[in-house]
């Protein structure tokens, strides 16, 4: 038996299948993830839940209470210093001279976006 063609592979999925009704059904409504999450929040608010009921929103890990360690945005090494003009953290003078100092604005935003420190215009 040779390789099945893509069409044959497709037929496995498309059917017809004995295990389901092959009648055409009404199309489902598509909702983007963000809207589904809003729906979920609304649904949870509409319910009278106890404070410790585990829900999608209550399960999320809380913001950290520990001091945040600082790392170089370029190399990921320890980042002791911060460039005053664009806020990039860097490891040593070499990284500053070679990369940070002459960085274009769009590039520094890209580096900052790695740790969510970029400027987001709304």
């Amino acid at each position: 038996m040779g390789q099945p063609t893509l069409y044959e592979l497709s037929q496995i999925t498309v059917g017809p299948h004995s295990f389901k009704s092959n009648k055409p059904k009404a199309a489902r409504r598509f909702k983007p993830a963000r809207q589904l999450l809003t729906d979920e929040t609304k649904y949870l608010q509409s319910k009278n839940l106890k404070f410790d009921t585990p829900t999608y929103t209550s399960l999320v890990s809380p913001p950290t209470l520990k001091p945040i360690k600082k790392y170089c945005d370029i190399t990921g090494l320890e980042g002791k210093y911060k460039c005053p003009s664009n806020g990039i953290r860097f490891h040593d003078v070499e990284v500053y001279q070679e990369v940070v100092k002459n960085m274009t604005t769009s590039l520094d935003q890209e580096y900052l976006s790695l740790r969510g420190a970029n400027v987001v215009l709304k």
Partner: peptide, 23 residues
Amino acid sequence: NVERIRVPEILFQPHIAGLDQAG
């Protein structure tokens, strides 16, 4: 090189990737 440990480390320090959650 550094990335090899930098990326998995985010599970322990999510703030590396700008995620404000406890690791």
